[in-house]
Amino acid sequence: MTAAPALYDVPGPRTRRRHALYGVLSTAVLLALLAWILYLLFHTGQFTATKWLPFEYQGIQLLLLRGLGNTLKAFAIAAVLSLALGGVLATGRLSDHRPVRALATLVVEFFRAMPVLVMIFFIFVALKVQPLPALVAGLTLYNGSVLAEVFRSGVHAVERGQREAAFALGMRKTQVMTHVLVPQAVRAMLPAIISQLVVALKDTSLGFLITYEEFLHAGKLIASNLDYDLPFIPVVMVISPIYIGMCMLLSWFAGWVSRREQRSPKTEAVAHAPAGPGALLPGGEPPMAPEP
């Protein structure tokens, strides 16, 4: 409701009537669109009993569940490993030693610039790795690099006084990092970190393309079954709400954390990271100043 404050004046009675008219018209158009889609679905026979029959069999339900399990397994492993890799690479980028810093920068920039799928295919085809390790390795390299940038920008976003005060108290650099900067940075960056995990969850579906037996793969198996009259649309209608729902849940969690953090006094000294998967896009330029 409060969107775009600069655009409109407070509406008067006539404008309100006009807006109400637009509202009715656009609702009618959108409903007509919906009706047309439903008509198409019925017209092409997507709701016939044969096409929905497979979902009643236990074997097929188990197949779908196994696929979902494999998706979640890949996501869990990739998430843990990318957080670890992100931590390592961020440490490298924040190092006092120039060669370490240069190496970490090179790795981070390279893996952020490459399409994830090209890396996954490279590992799968050229290095002849099994699908699951290939998928996890590709996701880890990419998301780890992005997370490294998130961690680094978080540490840089902590108020300068915090670091100076810690050094003034006689702490060593490691102590300053582990006791003062990193706890505040991670707290403030939590929404961006979770949003990046949403990207990782979405990208597990790339496993479909290297024949990893994940959720989409299970769906494809059912959809190409001639006995049930190729139930492709029903499969999409079952799979996509589950997939999108999982991602939405995680995105919503990121937003919830972000709202909580904004109220928390523990992150006062850090600039906040916004939530939402758009916050740090794959391949996006990092929203921060270059290395001094």
């Binding site: 990208d203 579906s205 989409l216 769906g219 649309i233 799979i239 996509s240 997939y243 991602c247 995105s251």
Partner: peptide, 19 residues
């Protein structure tokens, strides 16, 4: 924003021809 792109490709490339 919460749709995996592979799923979208899957639905569009293989699904729209069904209509």
């Amino acid at each position: 924003r919460n749709t995996p792109l592979t799923l979208l490709f899957f639905a569009v490339l293989l699904g729209l021809p069904r209509f």
